[in-house]
């Protein structure tokens, strides 16, 4: 079995850090919550699949520095070196894109949400297919509950982003529109 071979190869890798848990010891816990194939099954826990490396690096940095207060992420990143963060970000970028929500689509909701995406230019910063670019994250196929939670937190200034772009962007977006956007974006491949 393939994983047997790579497991043996993996056993040969040693990443030594000065902390209680090395990077390689922590990664299984990351994947346990966030999903092994890039898709999270857990409420309000984001899918990480195919996330842009610069964005992941920024968020991991914010967690490590406790600029973004969100357990268990602050604990999970404690003591990781800058290089560990880069390694993790690159690893995350290689996870498969998240599986979007499946099911019959409400076409009226989709059309209305597409208009919102146009109007608020989500598809500019996040790229036309919402797969993200550079420091702007992939959002296509993200968990619907996480999208709603995140947009609300940005709008209410509760979540302090790295820069303030999302707070600015969401200023004219209503809560009802946030719900509609999340519906659509969670179903995008």
């Amino acid at each position: 079995m393939r994983s047997g071979i790579v497991a043996a190869a993996f056993a040969g890798l040693t990443i030594v850090t000065a902390n209680a848990q090395s990077l390689q010891e922590r990664v299984p816990m990351c994947l346990a919550c966030h999903g092994e194939q890039g898709t999270s099954q857990n409420e309000n826990t984001p899918s990480l699949g195919a996330q842009t490396a610069p964005y992941s690096l920024i968020q991991l940095y914010l967690f490590r520095e406790k600029q973004r207060a969100a357990e268990p992420m602050n604990e999970m990143t404690k003591g990781l070196s800058d290089d560990d963060l880069r390694t993790l970000s690159d690893l995350i970028a290689k996870l498969p894109p998240p599986q979007p929500v499946v099911g019959t689509l409400d076409n009226a909701r989709v059309a209305a949400a597409q208009a919102l995406v146009q109007q608020h230019r989500c598809n500019f910063c996040h790229a036309p297919n919402l797969a993200g670019q550079e420091n702007v994250p992939r959002i296509a196929g993200q968990r619907e509950d996480y999208l709603v939670k995140t947009m609300r937190e940005y709008k209410s200034n509760t979540r302090h982003g790295y820069d303030a772009s999302m707070a600015e962007v969401l200023q004219p977006v209503t809560d009802a529109q946030i719900v509609e956007l999340a519906y659509y974006i969670a179903r995008l491949k």
Binding site: S3, V6, A7, F10, A11, P28, L31, T87, L91, K94
Partner: peptide, 20 residues
């Protein structure tokens, strides 16, 4: 299960490296 996960991670770490 630990082996399965280790294999996944190993594969990912390898993919991140020269085999990418």
């Amino acid at each position: 299960r630990a082996l399965l996960l280790a294999g996944t991670i190993g594969g990912l770490l390898l993919a991140a490296g020269p085999l990418a």
